[in-house]
Amino acid sequence: MIETVKDSKSMFTKVLNQVRMLLVLIGLVAVFSLLSPHFLNAGNFSAIGLTISVIGIVCIGQSLALLTGSFDLSVGSIAGFSGIVVAQLTRAYGMYPLVLVLGIAIGAFIGLLNGLLIAKAKVNALITTLGMMTIFEGGTFLASRGFAVGVNTPEFRFLGTTHVFGVPLPILILVFLYVVFYLILRFTVFGRYVYSIGGNPEAARLSGINVDRIRILVFVIIGALAAFGGCLLASRLGSAQTTAGNMYPLNSIGACVLGGIAITGGVGNLFGALIGVAIIGVLKSGLIMINMPSYYQWVANGIVLILAVYLDTRRRR
């Protein structure tokens, strides 16, 4: 017989663990608000929201990868490559919405290649996605000859620059996608498979789950989301940059882990990932507001990441 203490105290710690990073986020906002008079206002929050909207979308995909016990280093290259290709095609042919769909399809196809290599050919995920990252980094430069591709048509810039009741559309898209994927992960069969595979792939396979198929599907979704993110960024800036996604692979893994998604798979949720992304966004904006040179941001990101994981590990022990 197992005796379990189920009193209010343990319920309290459970809830505390859920919102721990949310408290960190609120704490950061409070500190920066005290340090800078310009931090706490709607305009700044909107700016923070815009900066994290693209990496935030990439993080949804990365969360899926981590939850299945894998990861994807090629998200940045997929975002960059799709952005460049879509911008080039739009400049040449117009037909924007169709081209956007094509861009997302390209991302999904690269994801499919990742998935097939990892699930079927059993090539290690680190090697596969690292290779794919390098290939499409090169691809991005080849497609653009090394220059940013500017496009200024209203259609192309619609997604990135529209406001709805004063809120930038990218933020709304970000929130919408998080809600959708949060619900998918929590309440659908696909979501259950994702967590089960991350928890114990062998047990999942012997329980009759088609593990390979789910893994491939996960990488396809990652690719599509990263490509969409890349197109959204190009739309917001009015030009597709060759180096747009360079920092995405590690930043997205960092943000997810910060938000409590275990690197070993099967543990965590998208709410946490969103908090993780927000913390990085707030840190970046706050440090600028208090006039810290921008490179300190990287230092701060690194410290926060290691600290968060350290605290989490200590709690689990």
Binding site: Y195, G199, N200, E202, A203, A204, L206, V267
Partner: peptide, 12 residues
């Protein structure tokens, strides 16, 4: 190794 997912709830 093969039978259960240790980190998942009993019902899952």
């Amino acid at each position: 190794a093969q039978g259960v997912i240790l980190i998942a709830p009993v019902k899952n």
